[in-house]
Design a protein around this nucleic acid. Structure first.
Length: 234
DNA sequence: AATGTTCTCAACCGCAATCTT
DNA sequence: TAAGATTGCGGTTGAGAACAT
């Protein structure tokens, strides 16, 4: 149980960092609410988790953002909006907090856009569940590793080689037919080179070469178009 | 040098999702 | 199955640093 005034707040001291690092070396990460009980550290589990994930973890890169990272973040943000965790998952060594701060203090100015840009908020529980299911988030363990395509044995390409890739340069209304399914580029609103791979009768995976992203598209028969959700930030 | 202003980023907060009992 | 605990996310805050006057 977290709460009361028993936990310290504010910046972490070197000694607190050492205690937390020692704890994780012995017990591993996770079970954050056990940290204070075991180590005596006067910090909430939530605070311990944040400190480890954003600062102490050896996988966190502390260097300045490179041009390549900036470029990747800008493209991912264009695609995903303020889904910082998803974006960070595609930028090796960077945390969601780092990416968010970097965007708000540097990139948004560089691009001349408002940093208060809102994410396309899900309106309902099912919407937010769909939104979560619609992108492959790398597990926290394999932070930054690309999600592989689903097992190729179980997949059948919808298109032949030539047809497999569809160049989507703008947001026009061109329709593309995939066997008996059809979708509108404008509703997807992605740019780049996409490849659709059939996983099952109900599920496609899109591969964007430009962004190295794999995204599942789940058909939703309850919607009159076949798009589970739209990217209204585009 | 002193003071005021702006910027950066670590950490907090509230909420929702997920897990555990 | 329900309720409480825990985890994870994105928005926001505020202390300290950097810059301007």
């Amino acid at each position: 149980m977290e709460g009361g005034n028993e936990y310290k707040k504010g910046l972490w001291t070197v000694e607190e960092d050492r205690i937390l690092t020692d704890y994780i070396r012995v017990h591993g990460k996770g079970k954050w609410n056990r940290v204070n009980k075991v180590s005596g550290l006067k910090r909430s589990g939530k605070s311990c988790r944040l400190r480890w994930m954003n600062y102490l973890s050896p996988s966190v890169k502390r260097s300045d953002f490179s041009e390549e990272e900036d470029d990747l973040i800008i493209r991912l943000h264009n695609l995903l909006g303020n889904r910082w965790s998803l974006i960070a998952g595609r930028v090796p060594g960077r945390t969601d907090n780092q990416v968010k701060n970097h965007w708000n203090s540097h990139l948004s100015k560089k691009l001349g856009v408002s940093s208060k840009r809102g994410k396309p908020k899900a309106k309902t529980y099912s919407d937010s569940k769909r939104a979560k299911n619609n992108f492959c988030t790398p597990s926290s363990e394999s932070n930054s590793k690309l999600q592989p395509l689903p097992n190729s044995e179980s997949n059948s390409k919808i298109f032949g080689d030539h047809e497999a890739a569809a160049a989507i340069d703008g947001f026009d209304d061109e329709m593309m037919n995939i066997q008996d399914h059809s979708f509108s580029k404008s509703k997807v609103g992605f740019s780049g080179m996409w490849e659709a791979t059939m996983v099952s009768n109900e599920k496609f995976w899109f591969h964007n070469d430009d962004l190295n992203l794999y995204s599942p598209y789940l058909r939703d028969p309850t919607l009159d178009d076949h798009y589970p959700f739209q990217f209204d930030n585009l």
